[in-house]
Design a binder for these strands. Structure first.
Lengths: 246, 246
DNA sequence: CGGGGGGTTGATCTCCTTCAATCAACGTGG
DNA sequence: CCACGTTGATTGAAGGAGATCAACCCCCCG
């Protein structure tokens, strides 16, 4: 039943061509990349790698969503990253995975064999430069998440997560222009809890509370309608004002 | 009364020569760096930059400790990074500071004028490569901190912070070999609370509790003695075992 | 029809926050 | 030199946000 997403024929067809590690590559560099890459698909729910596993590759997410998470021996788990299309998985120079990586939706990855990729990084600075930019962005995102985990209330955490997912969808232009915004949650309640440092019960309760207060409207369990985006932003606790509203 | 730490004469005298952004530089590259760098000192408690400020430089910490933190408009603050000797401050390509940076001890920084540094990054791949490594390490540290903030109890948070500070001191060889380990907290209770996502009262209580339970011994407010490091590790919640203990 | 995964809701408990008092160390100015 | 204010830290009492334990619902699917 798994209708896997289409896999691009060549790099020039690739939907993440201009955002992934290869963004700065010239066509000759792309040709070289083509020789060391292969695609790999995963179904929703599948594990991509376990923490501690040997990874023969590094990779870019082409389509779908994966999560990075850490687990303590007593079972407590914390999600530490979300991999969206164009995001990079793996660390050059480190053969062992540091986190559990799970596909939360059907997932297509563009994998590069580790050794040749590392060699190529030395030879072509474009790749390292792009990876540096991407890593700095990840670091900023991780730090924003630290503020959320350390200081925000459960309600603020939920509102923040929703607005982040919406912003991402907007940047991928999955939503139209104006009007009440609508989107699907790509995560289960449990995954949201793992991301936000909460229990799934608290996630459920706070979503219900936001619904009761009219901040969001639910269509089924997963589809969310936001009548007033600014209202949602107020709930995040961030000072996102932006400007005078009239 | 501020006896500022000695400032190195040349890069070859520099205590962070082999760990900072310049670690991979050849001597000719160092000579070029010398022309765009200058030292800057801060007293304990001083602010280095405010979030949103224009930064004319990027920099390496030579001696001392600084913190990166984020503040919400209602005053809640979360520390998102600790800058130790050899750590890098600033983001090439981004002129505005993203975080508040504060010296928690007397601090000496080796500053590079932004523009020439960015040009040099393009010309000499060594610098970008080293910065990538350092940024990936920071990202791992941030993710470890996310687990702490999201899932650990107050007691585990304190134990984790103590063991991290100890590990760092050990790597800088500030402590001797064996025996009961001793070190000074470089942070106030409030700073610890900001780092751990707690209130300062909870920090104080948990430190008292660890003292009562014999995990640590206090000498004054700041000096900590750890009779049994493994005992402390058990309290962190991490699966640090490492090996069969006899 | 039974079963299971995902989700919601209720009751209770507990860990941490909040508010507040107290203390020790230190500096400062009358 | 001592009263006073300040800063960092400790401790207590009370309250609350979120966790825990548990029941139940909905829907899909074999």
């Amino acid at each position: 039943m798994t209708e896997l997403a289409a896999i691009p024929d060549t790099c020039s067809d690739c939907p993440i061509r201009h955002r992934a590690v290869c963004a700065k590559c010239e066509s000759d560099e792309l040709e070289h990349l083509e020789t060391i890459k292969y695609y790999k698909s995963f179904e929703a729910g599948q594990t991509v790698v376990w923490s501690g596993d040997e990874m023969a590759f590094v990779a870019s997410v082409v389509t779908g969503i994966a999560t990075l998470s850490q687990t303590m021996e007593d079972g407590r788990t914390q999600m530490v990253g979300l991999l969206l299309p164009s995001d990079f998985l793996g660390r050059p120079g480190r053969p062992l995975a540091s986190y559990d990586v799970t596909a939360t939706t059907d997932l297509v990855m563009c994998c590069f064999r580790r050794k040749p990729f590392e060699e190529m990084m030395v030879a072509t600075p474009h790749i390292g430069q792009r990876l540096l930019e991407m890593t700095l962005d990840e670091l900023d995102a991780a730090r924003e998440w630290m503020l959320l985990l350390g200081r925000k209330t459960a309600r603020e955490k939920i509102a923040s997560l929703l607005s982040i997912i919406m912003r991402r969808d907007a940047s991928l232009m999955l939503s139209d222009g104006q009007g009440p915004l609508t989107f699907d949650l790509p995560l289960t309640r449990e995954a949201m809890a793992d991301y936000l440092g909460l229990t799934l019960e608290t996630v459920s309760r706070q979503i219900s509370a936001l619904r009761r207060d009219g901040v969001i409207v639910l269509e089924g369990k997963r589809r969310i309608i936001v009548p007033d985006f600014d209202r949602l932003l107020e709930e995040t606790g961030d000072d996102a004002d932006g400007g005078v509203p009239v």
